[in-house]
Design a protein around this nucleic acid. Structure first.
Lengths: 108, 108
DNA sequence: TATATCTTTTACTATGTACGAAAAATGCCC
DNA sequence: GGGCATTTTTCGTACATAGTAAAAGATATA
């Protein structure tokens, strides 16, 4: 873990999205949820690159699902938060809360 | 402004800190305020690099102060938010609010 | 077999984060 | 006035994150 391990901005977004999705969180649904929730449409490669990084850090785990013989398509890789991942989001969230709580409302 | 111009995590921290400091915001006080406010101690070089980037983006302006003949030391460079900078913070803040508002409290 | 569909993986580039040391500018003291 | 301590900024470099476009894997159906 070395010294200053803070999450990047998009890492926070992805982790928070995993919190929302719970069960079937995989590349496509994550991407979709981010788009709907934040209006941010990002390429699928960016999602996977970030997920892989988060997994290397131990904040997320993934497993390949059964090759669902539905309509064609490759087996999905599902992602879930590790406890360390939940902690990391909570820390970032708390930090921004400290930074923002005593400022006037954002008009977003 | 191109397409997806989102602030990096530390950029948000720095801009928010400028909001707190108002008047005499320069390298050292910014660094100090970040440390006190978030418990994050970062090198002075990181602060300046980020400030310079934010200035290139037009989110911040700076001017050299009078070489305050107080105790020795170089003229300070003061930083202040541009309207675009305030907007950028507000947008980031609103985005995280949307992501976090319907999640259970963080225990930070 | 070919083709369409849904998904992941790869390769590459651009941008952001971070540190340590060097440089500038000033005041103080011998 | 020559050095030294002090306060601040700038520079050079290394590494981490963010992002895209295109290729590849795996299955179903014509």
């Amino acid at each position: 873990m070395s010294k200053g391990n803070y999450l990047g901005e998009f890492e926070i977004v992805v982790l928070s999205t995993l919190l929302h999705l719970g069960e079937n969180a995989y590349g496509m649904t994550i991407r979709c949820e981010i788009d709907e929730h934040t209006g941010r449409s990002v390429s699928i490669g960016a999602i996977y690159a970030t997920l892989r990084r988060l997994e290397r850090k131990g904040l997320v785990v993934s497993h390949l699902g059964e090759p669902t013989a539905e309509r064609g398509g490759r087996a999905k890789r599902f992602f879930a938060l590790e406890p360390a991942g939940e902690d990391a989001v909570a820390r970032s969230r708390a930090m921004f809360a400290r930074l923002w709580n005593d400022l006037p409302e954002a008009r977003g």
